[in-house]
Write a protein that binds this DNA or RNA. Structure first.
Lengths: 233, 233
DNA sequence: GATACGACTGACCGACCGGTCAGTCAGTGA
DNA sequence: TCACTGACTGACCGGTCGGTCAGTCGTATC
């Protein structure tokens, strides 16, 4: 069966069975997770016999790792595409956030796959791959913030890694829980990732307090460090 | 099935088999997910025959739902415990964040179980339970913010739901990715949820920009609305 | 003592799991 | 022409899955 025969290659289907297997497996693993997907299901979706999968991949886990490796490679590429920016810190942050969240949604399956791997315990090999991608992303954002700090745009007492965590976390959380947020009547931005990313950056930049409240806050905590959290344990 | 009778039963180990099953299942489901846990494993861990589990719960899915129901009940209770607060908006936010993240780590299994259910697609019944808990939490925080806004502490143009999403997202993300963050050399707060929550609230309140950068920002975007994201697409 | 009942178990079921294997078949090079 | 190769398949493997069932045991009721 198969014999897709797209073009150019004479007799061999060229529509590489391996590629079809990887595509099918990526979609299924991303949606349901490793354990909930059977080799039979993958074979069916890829229009390939189950035995053929084992001809190309030595085991189910090996297939999963291959899928993950492709996803991480793609993801790294997307990441590189969204860099090369200049401008003020606010501009760069807004750009980063907007492009980042757009990329996450655009490549939803890849994102879900990597996040799934990142946020579970155990399994050295897979975690390391996902961690690499995530780490690159994180480092890029930290670099933007460090530059802004050197230029005096970012408050000197701010930890760039802290802000990066907050910003990336806000976007990852939005991606993960968009469906849930949609059900909350108070939430009006659930359908619009771009608007969400803009609002997040806006809050980060300006803070949420009114001018008068800021004055009170400064009067209360004269020491320049953290102003919150001075409560008895 | 399931006789209530938690105590006073004389000879029967009182250590209710049902309770043991639920405890074992909760731990396993939280750690590995529904599909990766077999009834045999649960039975072994609970020191009970597999058939006995089916005597108390009609199916694996029913057991899972029961576990989830208990987790949600507990979680709602924890939530109630951490309310009853007065004070300024900064104080209330810092308190909420600190207690919330502490509660998440303290009841890690329950948290993981609910998040796992919340962030996956499909499965009406389970999602609804988790969504209820999450929604209550969300609503509580929105209420705090609304009160602050009415008092003039919170900037008038800020959307409380937006801030609530950002704050809860920051905490959920930290909980989920603590292990990963620990591996990043730039991150110094990964081991200290309390400090992290304090820093997050601090950023929310004050913003991240230096005073001079704030002035530039205000000059650039005279309209009171969002100051970021005015770039060509 | 007879009876009834709920908690509990070991043996068992069909279905399906990941994985193997012998063999088919088209293309290739000598 | 023919040996060889690699992609590919259907049939099959042992094992585990969720789930069932006949039956044992301890206790409560009459």
């Amino acid at each position: 069966m198969v014999s897709g025969m797209t073009e150019s290659t004479p007799t061999r289907p060229a529509g590489d069975a391996t590629a079809r297997i990887l595509t099918a497996a990526e979609a299924l693993f991303a949606k349901h997770g490793f354990d909930a997907v059977s080799m039979n299901t993958i074979a069916e979706r890829a229009s390939v016999s189950k035995a053929n999968i084992f001809h190309h991949f030595s085991s189910k886990k090996a297939l999963y790792l291959a899928v993950l490796r492709v996803a991480c490679r793609d993801s790294t590429q997307y990441l590189q595409e969204l860099f090369v920016e200049t401008g003020t810190l606010p501009e760069r942050l807004a750009n980063f956030a907007r492009k980042q969240i757009a990329s996450m949604f655009e490549h939803g399956e890849v994102t879900r796959l990597i996040l799934r791997e990142l946020l579970k315990d155990g399994e050295r090999q897979g975690r390391d791959l996902a961690e690499k991608v995530f780490g690159d992303n994180f480092a890029q954002l930290v670099e933007i913030l460090r530059t802004g700090q050197a230029r005096g745009e970012l408050r000197a007492d701010m930890d760039p890694a802290m802000i990066a965590t907050l910003l990336i976390g806000a976007m990852v959380f939005f991606f993960e829980s968009q469906e849930v947020l949609r059900h909350f009547p108070d939430v009006k931005f659930a359908h619009d990732p771009k608007r969400y990313s803009g609002l997040v950056v806006d809050i980060l930049l300006r803070g949420i307090l009114s001018d008068s409240a800021v004055k009170n806050l400064r009067r209360a905590g004269k020491n320049g460090a953290s102003s919150s959290a001075q409560h008895k344990e």
